[in-house]
Design a protein around this nucleic acid. Sequence first.
DNA 1: CTAAATTTCATACTTTAGTATGAATGCTGT
DNA 2: ACAGCATTCATACTAAAGTATGAAATTTAG
Lengths: 138, 138
Amino acid sequence: MKKTIFTFAALVLAILALFQLSKYSVIAGDTSIETVIAIIAVIFFVIGIVINKRVLHKTKKPTQKINYQKIEELGLSKREYEVLCQIAMGLSNKEIAEKLFVSESTIKTHVSNMLVKLDAKRRTQAIQIAKELQIIPL
Amino acid sequence: MKKTIFTFAALVLAILALFQLSKYSVIAGDTSIETVIAIIAVIFFVIGIVINKRVLHKTKKPTQKINYQKIEELGLSKREYEVLCQIAMGLSNKEIAEKLFVSESTIKTHVSNMLVKLDAKRRTQAIQIAKELQIIPL
DNA sequence: CTAAATTTCATACTTTAGTATGAATGCTGT
DNA sequence: ACAGCATTCATACTAAAGTATGAAATTTAG
């Protein structure tokens, strides 16, 4: 944090110095206004990019939004989708059954139907496919 | 794409107009050089931020880097880690065996040892845990 | 209201996953 | 050389996952 303040202060000073330098340069007739403006433009353009990159990197969280349209396209029912999410959480059929207050055989039915719709052979493959299609959170 | 080119062209024209305007303004004595420079600085600062945001949003892929230190902490061997990655890809033990040119029973051994080290009961849970620990790509 | 879809459950079965145990080979660092 | 670890493989077993089929209750859309 101290480093950031230091860097920022140094940057401001450098810019102020450049301002003065450019002003005298223009008055003295050594440099054209166009050149000065161009340099200033480039400098602030770069500063904008750098600052933006810093901020984005700090607060960036991959909030992947779910493709609900794809879920409908696949013909996944509400229950089948719920089961799919629980599978992705690493739960067994038995655990899912307890969580959703239904029997294990019901879960098996949902899983089997879901696998067909996702064109998967195993539940692990279903997780992978669902992630690719962005229908479950990462 | 056409829209981008249009926007960019419009932007360049606007800036050139601003340049001319500011130049005559300064020559006429209506505006100080400082003001012009400040305006230019702000404009390009904003442009820098906007362009950077666009580029980052387009090409942003959640390139989560793998926590190799964590892999060592868990005591996962090279082979066990390989198997873990293949499991996350949705492959069965048999498929993994063929891919790595070993027998299925070898894969079973690796899987079993890996599950203990990851403190998982199932391969699906292992995937979930591995993702949390950031030892496999999302 | 009726037809279609969803959800539920069961039974029987096959396949895959995972555990336990033992053992041979090869590599590595001391 | 030798202890320790990783890798390989096998056999036998248990547990979990997945398939197939049929059927009843519920919801939903037309």
